[in-house]
Design a protein around this nucleic acid. Structure first.
Lengths: 208, 208
DNA sequence: TTCGTCATGTAATGGGTTACATGATTAC
DNA sequence: GTAATCATGTAACCCATTACATGACGAA
C-alpha cells in the first residue's frame, strides 16, 4: 500500500514537525501555509496519514484529553492526533537535505520554500538557484517560440503569452532578491520557526 | 468510451477550427499557443482525438498528399490529418457561448482566453469579470487567513504568502486593463484570427 | 548508417477529486 | 432542535503521465 504523493507527504511531515495535529486541522494548514500552491482533499489526506503511520514516520494518539470514559466504551470515534516519530523526523531531515533536481519544479518548489526555515543555508541556495535557472530556461523557450510564431497569432493569444512571460520574469526577479539576501547573510528568517503563542482556535475553512 | 477532458477537448476543437492538423503538430501548438497554462502528452492527445472522431466532431483524413501509392499497399502507417466537421464547429461555438462558471477557474480560464478572438464580446466580458471576482474573493480569504496567522508564521512562509498574494493582485490589475479595453471598444483583437502565411515548418519541441 | 525528429499509438500506473457515509460538538 | 462546523473515513472515478512499442524520413 499506497498513496505516496511526494508533496503531500513532505508537507505533512513538515507541518507535524512543528507540532502534533489531527487531520482536519492539518488540512486547513496545508491549504494556507503553503500559499496558493496546493489544495488537498480529505480523500488524499487521510489515506496518506495512514500510510505514513504504517511507515513508522507518524504515530497516532487517540486524544488522551477525551472528556472521560463516558463515551469511550460505545465505540465512540475519537479525534486522532498525529505526531512525528523520531524516525519520521529523521526522514524529513533526509528529504530536506537531499532535494533532488525536481525540488525546483513547479509542483515541489512551493512546499520546499515553505519549510526553508528548517533548511540549511546551502540547500536553500541550491534550490533557489535551481529554480531560477529552470525559469530562465523556460523563458528562453518561450521567447524563441514567440519569435517564431508571433505574426500568425491573434492579439489575445499574444497578450496571454506576454502576460505569461511577465509572470515568469517577475518570479525570476523575486528569486534574485531572495538569493541576494541569502548571500548577504541575513536570510530574512531568524533561524527556526517562531514558536510563540500557538493557540489553534480559528474558524473558517480556508481553501482559496 | 472515453477521455473527455474538457480543456483538452476544447483546445483541440479550437485549434482545428483555424486549420486541419495532425496530432503531432497539434500537440506542439497546444503547448505554445496556450502559454504556460497547460502541457499535454501524446498519451492524452491521441485517445482524445479518437474519441472526438467517434463523437462526429472531427474527421480523419489519411493524408491524400501521400507521395503516391508506392508505399500505400504495404500497410504503411499514414499521417492522419484531423479536420473539424460541421457538427464539431457547431459544438465548439456552443462551448464558446455557454461558458459556465468554471470558465473563470484556473484550469479553464487560460484556454478560454486563448480563443477570445473567436468569442463574442459579451461573453468575453462575462469571463473576464468572472475571473476577476473569483480572484478578488481568493484575495480576501488570503488576507483574512494571513491576518489570523501572521505572527505564528516564520519569515519564509510569510514571504511565500506575500509573493503569492502579489501574483494574484497582479493578475487582477491585468484583468482590469483588459476589461477597460473591452469597454473602450477597441478589443485589442482586430476580430478574427490572423490567417496570413501559415507555413507550418518550424523545428524544436516546445514544452516549457 | 546512424542519429534526430517526425509520427502514431497502447497499457499500466499515478495521484488526486467527488461523492458518499457517519457521527460529534458548538452556537443559535 | 437544528444548522453549521468539526472530524474521520472509503470507494468509485477521472484525468493525465510514463514507459513502451513501432516505424518513416531527412541529414550528416
Amino acid at each position: 500500500m499506497s498513496r505516496r504523493s511526494g508533496v503531500l507527504e513532505f508537507a505533512i511531515l513538515g507541518l507535524l514537525r512543528e507540532s502534533p495535529m489531527h487531520g482536519y486541522e492539518l488540512r486547513k494548514r496545508l491549504n494556507t501555509s503553503l500559499g496558493v500552491f496546493r489544495a488537498f482533499s480529505y480523500g488524499s489526506l487521510y489515506p496518506c496519514l495512514k500510510a505514513l503511520v504504517s511507515q513508522g514516520w507518524l504515530a497516532e494518539e487517540h486524544s488522551p484529553e477525551e472528556p472521560l470514559a463516558a463515551a469511550a466504551l460505545a465505540g465512540r470515534r475519537a479525534k486522532i492526533v498525529y505526531r512525528l516519530t523520531a524516525a519520521g523526523k529523521e526522514h524529513f531531515e533526509e528529504l530536506l537535505t537531499h532535494s533532488g533536481p525536481d525540488a525546483w519544479e513547479d509542483e515541489q518548489f512551493g512546499v520546499r520554500f515553505a519549510f526553508f526555515s528548517h533548511t540549511e543555508r546551502d540547500v536553500r541556495m541550491r534550490v533557489l538557484e535551481g529554480r531560477r535557472s529552470r525559469l530562465e530556461e523556460r523563458l528562453e523557450k518561450m521567447r524563441a517560440s514567440l519569435a517564431r510564431t508571433r505574426e500568425r497569432l491573434d492579439n489575445y493569444t499574444l497578450e496571454l503569452q506576454r502576460h505569461g512571460m511577465e509572470s515568469v520574469e517577475r518570479e525570476v526577479r523575486w528569486l534574485n532578491e531572495l538569493i541576494e539576501m541569502e548571500r548577504a547573510g541575513r536570510g530574512r528568517a531568524k533561524g527556526l520557526h517562531a514558536d510563540q503563542g500557538r493557540d489553534n482556535t480559528d474558524p473558517t475553512d480556508t481553501t482559496y
